[in-house]
Structures are given as structure tokens and as C-alpha cells.
Design a protein around this nucleic acid. Sequence first.
DNA 1: TGAGCTAAGTTACAAATGTTACTGCGTTGT
DNA 2: ACAACGCAGTAACATTTGTAACTTAGCTCA
Lengths: 337, 337
Amino acid sequence: MTNDQLMVKAAWLYHVEGITQAQIAERMLLTRRKVNELLSAALDQGVVKISFNSPLAETVEQAAKLRARFALDDAIIVPTPADAGQIATVIGRATALFLDTYLRGAGPAALGVGWGATLRETVNHMTALNAPAIKVRSMMGGLTRGSEINTFEIVRRFAKVLNAECHYLAAPIYADDPASRDTIIAQTAFKTLLGEAASVDVSLLSVGDVSTQSLQVRYGLPAGTDGAALRAAGAVGDLLGRYLDRDGQEIDHRLNRQVIAPELRDYRRIRTRVIASGGRHKRDVLGACLKAGLATILITDADTASWLLGDLPSSPPSVNMEDARAAQSQAIDGHQA
Amino acid sequence: MTNDQLMVKAAWLYHVEGITQAQIAERMLLTRRKVNELLSAALDQGVVKISFNSPLAETVEQAAKLRARFALDDAIIVPTPADAGQIATVIGRATALFLDTYLRGAGPAALGVGWGATLRETVNHMTALNAPAIKVRSMMGGLTRGSEINTFEIVRRFAKVLNAECHYLAAPIYADDPASRDTIIAQTAFKTLLGEAASVDVSLLSVGDVSTQSLQVRYGLPAGTDGAALRAAGAVGDLLGRYLDRDGQEIDHRLNRQVIAPELRDYRRIRTRVIASGGRHKRDVLGACLKAGLATILITDADTASWLLGDLPSSPPSVNMEDARAAQSQAIDGHQA
DNA sequence: TGAGCTAAGTTACAAATGTTACTGCGTTGT
DNA sequence: ACAACGCAGTAACATTTGTAACTTAGCTCA
């Protein structure tokens, strides 16, 4: 029996029939240890999924406010996890649930996807759906330097889970200079691919920030550009590889003329534009995107939602993540007293 | 905060953020005991749900064979639980998952439902869906003597979870005698209700058997009729309150002229006819229904599926459930040696 | 051939979980 | 007002779970 099958069977016995891991080990002729491994593997590989039927009242309220304030079609807010490292996971899961129902219902012709930790978690937790009619399109090129989060891998996995075909945008995100960018995108092949990317019915993207936290800043920027330069030019983060200022306008920086991705103008024509991101350092750029109306559906966490609604003061860009985390866990500890 | 909200919040912290029950208790200012209670309540009230992404290979194979053999549109097979008491739960859950996706996809105009332990579990595990356009219809009258599984309750809950309206078939399943049955169904009100019941797009029923296990045999039969008489007349069980022989034909018994439910002839016109039932004592009647083409979609357990496919010998009607159960658990225990 | 290495199993233990028994407080009814 | 009842909280316990340390078998490469 394949490993996948073992996971499903063990998970069935455990979660549905409710017998102990020791008993499962006996029945399946495995060690208890192995069963334990299988069960956690099943959980984080998304073979078994845990989903919620009723949403949390608090987040529903925030979602309604966000919808009204930024003219969104929908907003989904998940509670901010105490452990900042879990934000991508949690938002990713919520996004997966959203997409699951959305794709089943609307059945769009084409889905454009970006990349990032959040989208990786999303595809991890999607339910398999036989929808060969859906076209999956990559909306941005890949990182050229190695990274644990691979653009192509994400697109491929989306296609696989939907049993659909996919097109990669087989190019780096940034050309070496504006002139070569123009040459590249003038190629028939790229024109087609960019055209396809811009003509999807639904796009699923996350945003990047300009801190050193950002994978894109660390690995994705071409030689001669760094995060500091972008910040100096007024950037608060990027969408589709294009760096934006606080108002969601593209900054005047050479990098934005090197990017190989659809124009924001074309991007705006996409009917359903999902942006899924959260966490403290993504605040500013999320705010910028919303201000500029770049999203029609927002998926984020409760703290970020509060901030977007103006409940919290704007954070200075120099905020230290360690301090922030310490402050947060203190608040939680304080609760106990 | 309402109890439901507490459950959702605790479940979120536990299943998504992955913190311990003790920590949740601290954060939510509850006792660990309370948290523990909330979590299991959340699980069996269906506030959180565990679902599987990939099906078990073995059952998929059986399902394909059943589809071919009985000209079904679909078949869903779940592993037979070791504990016979769990059969309704397990099949019910599978049915809920099926209905969830089915209703989201096809969006039928009207759903007819029956009653029984399996359907109660089904509605327990359905995902809430805002589908006010769906009409929920009761397809059979209610038991007149008290029972823990109430017909009206089930219809109402289906309607509630779909946020839809429902019509009850406000009548007993059986009239006192054939003559009064005819009088009753001649009433305009009942004509309308029976017509509605027979004109749904999807019906969801389970079957009854003729053993003393059967709730219907124990509580639902009118005075003057008992299980033994039905068995003597060749009945192997009932669908829609109508008792059938091994070939799925209505037996010639007075009871079948007392029943207040759609005619099988009309029932057959329903496009999608789901039958969800399993367990050893339902074998014969399931076989009868399939032979007569009364189902288009079957949801049952693996052992029953095997039997239906002819892999197992027909069981004598006098089989003792206690023995069967003992034999089964012995088989499992034997595994360990 | 044998030393060393890897992978899997076994054992053992610490943490987390589920349950039971007990305690005390409030509430109800006489 | 007082007794009886019951419910929620507390603490303690047994079970289950997750993990780490250790062992063994099989294999590779010198």
C-alpha cells in the first residue's frame, strides 16, 4: 500500500472510528511510532482537513467593516495567531477554504496565481477538485536564485490539485535592465503568456514588503537594487513584483521598469482579485493596495484588519519584530494574572 | 460570548494554532476541563469537521464495480467500522460530505428527505450553506409514537442548515386502514404535499429492514401489523414506508395500502435518488432496491458493498446480531496475534 | 571481511488529554 | 431558615500521545 493510502487509512481509523494509535498500530501491523508519524503527516500534508462551520463573531464584524470601507466584494479575517511564524499557515488555510468553495461554485475559466509562503500553504490545504476546464496561469516569473518557495512549483501544484492544465510564466521576475525587459516582453511567447495572465477571471496573489523579512527583497531583487533603495524611493511593498507607495501607486524606480509581469492597468481588469496576506510587516503594503482598489477580496488576520480599519496607530517602519513579538506574548501572559 | 462562539474559538486555538488545552484555558479564562468539553462538543456537533482529501483505494474500486453492476450514477463506499454501532454515523458523515459538494455544484431546486439514524447524522455534519432557493420537502410522514429520531426534526434541520424553507408531510406514515388512507390522500392539502414530495430534483432516503433492530418495525407500524407478518409476506425491508420483496417489488400486504407517501412509480421519476444505508441487517433491502433500480446514488459501507457485489454468501434472515458482532471483533483481535 | 554508517524498530519517558471523585457554593423547596 | 439537591470548579489520576535515546539489522565501502 502506498504511503498516501496508509495515511488515509490510519487517519480514518483515528479520526472517524476513534480508536487509539496503539490499536491502529496493531491492526495495520505498524509500530505506534509509525502511526503517530502518519497521522501528523496526514494533517500537515492536507490529506485530512479540519474545517470550521461557524465563523468567529468578532472577525465577521471586522470583515463587514472592511467590505464597506474599501468597497470589497468580500473579506475573510482569521484570528491572529500568537506565534507570528504561523501567520502564513493560518491565512493560507483560510484562503484554501475560500478557494475550495469559490471554485466549486463559480467555476471560473482561468485562475491566475502568484507565489509566496501564504500561497504555498493555500495549495497545501486545497481539496482536490476535478476541474479540467480551469486554466491555471502563473502571473509572475520565478525567482532566479534558489528559494524554498518556488514559483513554478506552486503553479504546478495548483494545477495538480484541480486536475487542470497550467502555463508557467517561464522568466525571471526582473530583467537585468529596462531595455532588455522591453525586448523580452516583445517576444510573441511572452506577449501571449502575459496576455493570458492578465485575462484570468480570478487572481490569487499575496503582497511583498520591503523589510529584510521579505523573501523577494532577500533573494528576488536583481543585482544593483536593494531594499533600502526601494524604501528610499517611497516603496512600502510590492504586488506582482511592482513596488508601490503608500497610496498604491507604482514608485518611480528603475526596478519597476525591469519587471516581467502584467501591467497594473491590465491587472485591474480582472473581475475577482484575491489578495491574501497578513502579519505586521505587510500592513503598509496591504493598506496601499486597498486604498488603490487593487483587491476585490481580502484575506488577512484580525490584527492587520484592525490596523487597516484605523484602530491602531501606524507603526514606524523601523519596528523591531522581536520586540513586537515579546510585547504580544506579554499581553497574553498578562491575561492569566 | 455564546457557547457556540466559545467552541469555535477554543477549536480554532487548538486545531489551527496548535496550542494545548491548558494554554487555551488560561487564555480564555476557563478551566481545562471546560475547554476539553468544548472541544469534544465542537467535534460531535459538527462545529469543526474533519474531512478526507484522498479516498481509500479499496473503496474506490468497489464503488466503480457497483456503479457498473447496478447502473448507478455514483457510489460512495466508506470502510465498515469495527463497532457496528458506528455505521450510521460513518455513513451519515460521508453522505453529508457528498451532499455538501452536490448542493454547491448542482444547486437543485428541491431536496426531498426521509428519516432515520443515518440521515440524522448526515444533517449533523452538513456544512452550513446559504441557499434560500432550495426547497426542502419531507417525503414521508412522521412516527406517531415517540422516538429519539424525529422525522420533522430532521427536515427542519436540513432546512436550517441550508437556510431554506421546508414543508413537512404532516401525517402519520400509516393510516389505520386502506380506506382511510385513500380518504386522507384525496385531501387537497395532502395531494399538494405528496405532489411536492414526488417532484423534487434530489431525494435522500435510507432504507428500513424487517428485523427487530428497525425503529420503524418497533415504533412505526400501526396496530395489527408486526415484523413477523411482513417477513412472512416476503418483505426484506422498506423504502418510503413501502415494504419490498427481494426483487424490489412492493409486497402484497395491507400495510402497503395504508402508507402515506409518494408511489414508487412517481418516486422513480426523481432524477437523483440517493439511498444512504449500511450495516449487515440492511443488506437484503439494499440489494432489493438496487435490483429494482430505485437508487441512482448509493452510499454504504465496504462490507455491504462486498455483499452486494456477490463476494459474500447471503446471510440467513435469522442471523443473530450479537453473534455477528462478536465474530467481527474476534476477527480483529485475531489480527493482533 | 569487517568497520562504520544508515535506517528502522524498540524502549522509555515526559507532556498532554480525558475522566472521575470530591468539594463547595448557590438554589430551590418545604 | 434549613435541608436537600444539583451544578461548577478543583484536584487527582489513568490513559494516550509525542519525542528522544538507544538498539539492532542490513548495507556500503575500504
